[in-house]
Write a protein that binds this DNA or RNA. Structure first.
Length: 584
DNA sequence: GCCGTTTTCGGCCCGACTGTTTTCAGTCG
């Protein structure tokens, strides 16, 4: 295995360890320990390899003890894990592939492999068609057909879909079901409510006078392609896009615990229940049971639920078992940034480059949102990006912005640019003109395949330019379409902190860049952030809610976000106060 | 395998739905 072991790869290996152990029927708690470790590693804000290099004790991490810590060290040191290889070799081939099929767990996978010699999805499909699977003991024709269904729908669908794609589908379903008679609550839960950047499925919760009728309407929605399961309180369906959606109904009085339970994350809930179990409380979607009296207490709101546990309310975005429960116990949950904290946007486009709206339309839309300021940052022209501005057009635009700013009451327009960072780290506009702008946003749009070393040098060089204020979409990823660039983010954060540069949280749902764990780390290192929309038309301003959600997932308070500050403070941070502007 | 103002040993989250079953195992979330 070449190169440094990345956290994502390491997490995958421990996840497979868990699968292997499960197939072998080992202690379920040992299996859970491996799964928990995989989760923790996957969401670490720093690379394990870096932590080890700096002499940190991995056992300090939650869920990581002696055994797993030494396996992590082995992986970093050698790129291999002997225990994993031994386990893998002790089992029939292809089990991992079979486990990926929904409805097939470790028991079934093992039997298929040993009793029928199946080692791939194609072989399994063939065996079902030949009737072999239905003849296995305790597996009937019905089960075989269900597996076949799973295989075929799995082939059709993408694994996880971006948040921004799922949301419209959800809104559609909600608006179809909410008007039904007797429905009182109907809301998204799960990773959607926590604003994870991608979703594996859609979770909806509700209460109604006649839950079964709501379930029946749900499964017969036109968007439903297939019903996986249907009972009196819950149903699971596959939507026409291939996405799974689950609906659960409960009585009105228990809505708070239902919502809490199914908002998750699973890790948060497990941590919560383990902790409360020691206090004699059993938590479920129906409420809290005192194990001494066996009496069930119900909660109609999440707030009341957390309060009963002696905890401060925990916002859904940070329910990831990363220390939030301890903080809630000490009543020390930070006041996370909210939409009403946002006072302006520092990265938007107009029809001067590839936006679709005029300067004035964008300005008025921002003003209508109550913003104090708006920075116009069209593309620079270097690499033929749609209508990018050269020096001459930029000067004209500056003039237009200044004139419009004179005319418009109630909002301040800032003249800016989104300048390209060229392959060697230079910018594609000269310092002379950059120095005359109110704000300079810099970003990478070309030569995305550079090596990590080269890309890191390139970005650091740009950050050393005194005129650059904000590094936009730092990893250049497009969720589900383009991998992030190879760059040493830790080095970028340190440079940003040193030069007092701002890193962007880009709100576009297909970018969400920086992502949550990077935001968390940047904030830890004292880097100031900006939540920008990168809007290309007025409706895009609304996307700021995604950026805010990411900032919240990174535990940001308003103080961590530049555009939560009033205009005067923003200008002085950018070292562009009124005097500067007149002389500049 | 992890973890500890109930424990360094003995616990470890909780319930719904399905299919093939006469009482429950497997899977999922």
């Amino acid at each position: 295995m070449g190169g440094v072991m990345k956290n994502a790869d390491m997490a995958g290996i421990f996840e497979q360890m868990a699968d292997f152990l499960e197939i072998r029927g080992e202690n379920p708690f040992k299996i859970r320990a491996y799964r928990r470790a995989a989760q923790v590693i996957e969401h670490l804000p720093r690379e394990v390899a870096t932590m080890l290099a700096e002499g940190e004790d991995l056992k300090a991490l939650p869920g990581i003890g002696e055994a797993i810590a030494s396996k992590m060290a082995e992986l970093v040191r050698t790129g291999h894990l002997v225990a994993w290889e031994t386990l893998r070799d002790s089992l029939p081939e292809g089990l991992s592939t079979l486990l990926e099929i929904p409805g097939i767990g470790p028991k079934t996978a093992y039997r298929l492999a040993t009793e029928l010699g199946i080692s791939s999805v194609d072989e399994l499909e063939q065996a079902i068609l030949e009737g072999k699977v239905a003849h296995l003991f305790r597996l009937g024709d019905r089960t075989a057909q269900n597996i076949l269904h799973s295989i075929r729908s799995m082939r059709r669908k993408d694994q996880r879909i971006p948040l921004g794609q799922a949301l419209p589908i959800v809104e559609e379903i909600l608006s179809a079901l909410r008007p039904l008679p007797g429905v009182r609550n109907l809301v998204p839960a799960g990773s959607l409510r926590r604003f994870r950047e991608t979703l594996g499925d859609i979770d909806l919760m509700g209460t109604a006078d006649n839950p079964e009728a709501v379930i029946r309407s749900f499964v017969s929605l036109p968007q439903v392609r297939e019903v996986l399961a249907q009972g009196p309180t819950k149903a699971s369906v596959i939507l026409s896009g291939g996405l799974q959606a689950d609906l659960r109904m409960v009585e009105h009085e228990a809505f708070g615990s239902l919502l809490q339970y199914f908002t998750g994350s699973r890790q948060h809930n497990i941590a919560l229940r383990t902790r409360m179990q020691k206090k004699g409380l059993k938590l479920s979607e129906y409420g809290i049971t005192d194990t001494a009296t066996d009496r069930l207490e119900k909660f109609s709101t999440e707030e009341a639920f957390y309060e009963r546990l002696g905890l401060q309310y925990i916002p859904p975005e940070i329910r990831e078992d990363r220390g939030e429960i301890d903080l809630a116990e000490r009543k020390a949950i930070p006041r996370l940034v909210e939409r009403s904290d946002i006072r302006g946007d520092l990265h938007v486009h107009t029809n001067w480059s590839d936006g679709t709206a005029s300067l004035e339309d964008m300005a008025r839309a921002a003003k209508a949102l109550g913003y104090q300021y708006l920075a116009i940052t069209d593309h620079s022209g270097g690499l033929g990006i749609a209508g990018g501005l050269n020096e001459e057009r930029l000067l004209k635009q500056m003039q237009a912005i200044r004139q419009l700013d004179e005319r418009l009451e109630g909002i301040r327009l800032l003249a800016g640019i989104e300048v390209n960072i060229l392959a060697d780290g230079r910018l594609d506009l000269p310092d002379g003109i950059l120095s005359r702008l109110d704000v300079v946003v810099a970003s990478v749009h070309s030569a995305l395949n550079q090596s990590e070393a080269k890309m890191t040098r390139r970005i650091l060089k740009a950050l050393e330019n005194p005129h650059v204020d904000i590094l936009a979409h730092p990893t250049c990823r497009l969720i589900g379409q383009r991998e992030p660039i190879a760059v040493d983010l830790e080095a970028v954060f340190q440079a940003a902190a040193q030069h007092r540069k701002i890193l962007e949280i880009n709100s576009m749902p297909d970018r969400l860049d920086l992502q949550d764990i990077s935001i968390y780390r940047a904030r830890e290192l004292g880097v100031l952030l900006a939540i920008d929309t990168d809007a290309h038309r007025p409706e895009h301003f609304d996307l700021v809610r995604f950026g805010i959600a990411m900032a919240r997932r990174g535990w940001c308070r308003p103080a961590h976000i530049l555009n939560c500050r009033p205009l005067g403070e923003v200008l002085s941070y950018l070292k562009r106060d009124e005097a500067y502007r007149r002389t500049g």
